[in-house]
Simulated assay, not measured.
Amino acid sequence: MEKLLHWSIANAEGDKEAISRAGQPDPKVLQQLFGGGPDEPALMKHAMIVISNPEADLENKLVAFDNFEMLIENLDNANNIENMKLWEPLIAILDDPEPQLRAFALSVIGTAVQNNEQSQNNFAKYDGALGKVVKIAGNSSEDINVRTKAFYTLSNLLRHNAGIYQQFNQLNGLQLIAPVLKYADANEKLKLRTMALLSTVLTVANMNAEFFALLRADNIIESTLEFLDPECNLYLIDRVLNFFSQLINGGFEFSEAELEKLKTGVKNIEAVEAQLNEDDYKTVKYVSK
């Protein structure tokens, strides 16, 4: 498999000398990949061998990760991660010193568990696995791309899975939200992923007084109100409006101080109203009158 990876990279770059050094790959492996009858579990296993090999160079590991992610976009292959005992080596990559590998591992996990309760639960049963992702997401010293992937992974792990949300809550996961939204060095993509996680939480949390109090205690209401500003990214404004709309429909009532900020925010974004989600905007505007 490593020989195939070297050959693939050399061909993609058109490097004749490198192609010559790599030699021709095993025809049987090529047949597996391109011949219409690939043994995909075997390819997954080979890719993980390369990824976990300390002697393999970074370029080959990234190619192997790319191949692995394409394979596990298939639901059966995603569920085979557990059957083939590949979760543990994949989770171990979250501790790798190379940020590109940590980012790829998070991306693969997020893809494998997306809309897939079986793989969500398979991942979450590994001791400390969810905690690793939460820790990465909350680490302000972490590479921004890695943190962004961590929020993507968390969103896909929690979506429609109350059990994993409970684990997330026990890890004080909601405390991740406000610091990122207020973090000056966080780019818009990271903030959007953070708001996506917050929206996902609303699909599994009980909309009750206890949950609303938790949102306030973790400064989530305060920090999201700050984005009702026409200078902000329009997608972020839309995400915030959707968040408030869901809360309102769930019975949330703004405090007097929050309501004053909401009124100011809604007035401020009137200039971009036509570019925002109409239903969410109307719901929030009605409450702010």
Rank of each mutant, 00 (worst) to 15 (best):
K3C: 13
S8G: 08
I9E: 07
N11F: 04
N11Q: 09
E13D: 14
K16T: 12
E17V: 15
A18M: 13
A18T: 11
G23S: 04
Q24R: 05
P25F: 04
K28N: 14
F34H: 13
G35F: 10
G36V: 07
G36Q: 09
P38S: 14
L43N: 11
V50E: 00
V50K: 02
I51Q: 02
P54R: 10
D57A: 13
V63N: 08
A64Q: 05
D66N: 15
N67E: 15
N67T: 13
F68V: 04
M70R: 13
E73H: 15
L75Q: 14
L75M: 14
L75D: 15
D76F: 15
A78H: 11
A78M: 12
A78Y: 11
L86V: 00
W87Y: 06
P89M: 10
P89C: 09
L90F: 07
I91E: 02
L94R: 01
D95L: 08
P97I: 05
E98Y: 09
F104P: 00
L106V: 03
V108P: 05
I109G: 09
T111A: 14
A112E: 08
A112T: 07
V113A: 06
F123G: 09
A129V: 04
A129L: 03
G131N: 02
V133P: 07
V134H: 00
K149H: 09
K149I: 04
A150N: 01
Y152L: 10
Y152W: 14
L154H: 01
L157W: 02
G163E: 15
Q167H: 10
Q167G: 08
N169L: 15
G173R: 06
L174H: 01
Q175H: 09
P179A: 10
L181I: 04
K189R: 11
L190G: 03
K191H: 02
L192H: 00
T194I: 03
A196Q: 11
V201R: 06
T203H: 10
A205I: 07
N206G: 05
A209L: 09
F211R: 00
F212T: 01
R216A: 05
D218A: 13
I220N: 00
I221N: 01
E222L: 08
L228P: 02
L228V: 02
D229Y: 03
D229V: 02
E231M: 12
Y235L: 13
L236E: 11
I237Y: 01
S245I: 00
L247E: 00
I248L: 14
F252P: 06
L259A: 11
E260K: 07
K261C: 08
L262W: 01
G265H: 00
V266T: 01
K267Q: 12
E270A: 05
A271D: 07
V272D: 00
E273L: 05
Q275H: 12
N277R: 11
E278A: 09
D279F: 15
D279S: 12
D280C: 08
K282L: 10
T283I: 11
K285S: 09
Y286M: 13
V287Q: 09
